[in-house]
Design a protein around this nucleic acid. Structure first.
Lengths: 344, 344
DNA sequence: CTGAAAGCGCTTACAG
DNA sequence: CTGAAAGCGCTTACAG
């Protein structure tokens, strides 16, 4: 079933069918009615691939990506980019191009966002780290009717927004279950939050809530201490912690970000024993200790997939009007030594 | 960069460029050399979407799928079909059609396979349950140069073959780690294999090997008993098992197929306590007990994804000659109550 | 051995 | 308000 056949059945030209399909002006009520009827009867659906063929060279779909600069502690941000590259490779035949912009703080985020909004991008992908700035961007995007997808972190913004991210509450609950299974009900539990200069990250806060909710929901009363630690590249056992850790009983430690690899060595130095550790992200350092059985579980956020899904989702939205994939709940993937995902 | 531009640069017609691109006959050595050089210099790659446009209506890509009939105990087989349907929906614009055939034993498998091979399919997807019959099919497919992908189960066949499946050894090792974490080194372990009329399934055997390998590799000496049980829809605790289970110590039970849901109730009846269970597949019955905390972990084989990947992989192979995705290692996905994958 | 034309399903720019 | 033509990048069938 093609536009050509619809045209013949409706006794109009293919141009008119195209006009009706796209709700363009310049079609009489009666003609429109007739064409729509035929479309309905025949169950015709537009061939989106063919529709992109001419446009692929004539009018690109331009997507702007605004991500944290992938260095220092943000090596993680190389991963969503890989997914984006994969999506672009698949879609460049269909005329999709992506420009990447970087930020490293709220000011640079704002500046880059302003620049991007002025250019004529068809869609935007970014990360909601800064509430005020994210709201400003969202509002501008909405005003220009440019679809915007946030990945990685969910944030409560002034208007409804699209998020492709892991449910951090769920992730915390999974961590609770995993540690509970290892440590039991006679153990002590610790939530380690690494703070950066802006305090605790929204994701980490929610992960802790989820962790605590797991035990609450089950009605299990175990001691859960929160350790808020300034974000550095080392971890020290403070005097206070020394007291907490000073027992031979089982200890379950939930590190709410990607830095769980900082713990095993320092625990050895300070002779903290009988620990089970659950952390986030399959990075090189974490993997090292996972393989040595010093970290028990890692939770994977599938960052590559998040990047990939954002571009694919936006493409589907722009070409088919299908907004379903602009909001995704990325599964809480549990990683142990034996099922480490391939880095391809 | 288009075929048109290559033609201009090489001073030939687009027809000739097309001939070179497809290694067709009727191009002089010198012309071919020149065209290939330009292609290399310019880094031209064929636009596969455009290349399918005309062919999508003229010459369909016909794929035959031969699967177990999805009834009785084989409800599982609805899932790869869902993935296949999804792939077909995405690719039907590009002229991909799939015909489904069913088998329910080795004879019907052979009959259907024979029928399929006689028809002119461009590619085949099936399951290697029956060694002899699978070998026959593989040989015929190879003779006709029709690509064939087996999903679900890996099997050692006479010629190299394409498999999209979970690594069952790895899956068993993951199960070993999970149960070990829950049960510790003072517990007893049980591997429950459900046998069907052909004895134990290849997958289950490998899962058991992986499970045992986990403990061997770590040098952990724990008692691991194997229970081979005839495949029925119920599970009974036999006299022998009664003796085995008759202790209050922790017991780790690894069910190597999708029937772990048969255990919790019978354990209650027979007063078998302190059990941890790891099973396979996120089916309704298993989910019921997972949610009640009677099953601790389920291993997901991502059957939907297997079906989807088979069709996509074959399409890429047929249109781009890219065989990379015909052999896939589907991750060993660990499922707990809090991260049950959505059934969409 | 090579080229020119027709066409896949759609969109655009122009003509009326 | 509507149609006819040109073209996206490629493939095919035909002509020479």
């Amino acid at each position: 079933m093609s536009i050509k056949r619809i045209a013949k059945l409706a006794n109009v030209s293919i141009g008119t069918v195209d006009r009706v399909l796209h709700n363009r002006t310049g079609v009489s009520k009666e003609t429109e009615r007739r064409v729509l009827e035929i479309i309905k009867e025949t169950g015709y659906v537009r061939n989106t691939t063919a529709s992109r063929l001419k446009l692929a060279s004539l009018k690109k779909i331009k997507i702007a990506v605004l991500f944290p600069e992938a260095k220092h502690n943000w090596n993680y941000w190389k991963l969503p980019k890989k997914g984006i590259t994969k999506a672009v490779n698949e879609l460049n035949e269909l005329g999709v191009v992506v420009d990447e912009f970087l930020f490293f703080d709220s000011t640079s985020f704002r500046n880059q966002a302003d620049k991007i909004v002025l250019d004529d991008y068809d869609a935007l992908v970014t990360v909601a780290f800064f509430k005020e700035e994210s709201n400003v961007l969202l509002q501008k995007a909405n005003a220009k009717k440019v679809p915007l997808v946030f990945i990685d972190t969910e944030m409560d913004l002034d208007s409804p927004a699209n998020f492709i991210r892991q449910d951090s509450i769920k992730a915390g609950m999974v961590a609770g279950r995993l540690l509970h299974g290892l440590v039991g009900e006679t153990g002590q539990y610790f939530v380690v939050n690494m703070l950066n200069d802006r305090g605790i990250h929204a994701n980490n806060k929610q992960r802790e809530s989820g962790f605590r909710a797991y035990f609450d929901k089950k009605g299990i009363q175990v001691p859960i201490k929160t350790i808020n630690y300034s974000m550095v590249n080392e971890f020290e056992v403070t005097e206070e912690m020394k007291i907490w850790f000073d027992s031979e009983g089982p200890k379950g430690i939930f590190v709410t970000n990607s830095k769980s690899h900082l713990l095993p060595e320092i625990f050895e130095t300070y002779n903290v024993t009988n620990t089970s550790i659950v952390g986030f992200d399959v990075n090189k350092s974490n993997l090292k200790y996972l393989k040595k059985d010093k970290i028990n579980f890692l939770i994977h956020q599938q960052p590559r997939n998040q990047g990939y899904a954002a571009i694919k989702g936006l493409f589907d939205f722009l070409t088919k009007g299908d907004a379903a994939a602009l909001n995704l709940d990325i599964p809480v993937e549990i990683v142990v030594k034996e099922n480490v995902p391939s880095s391809k």
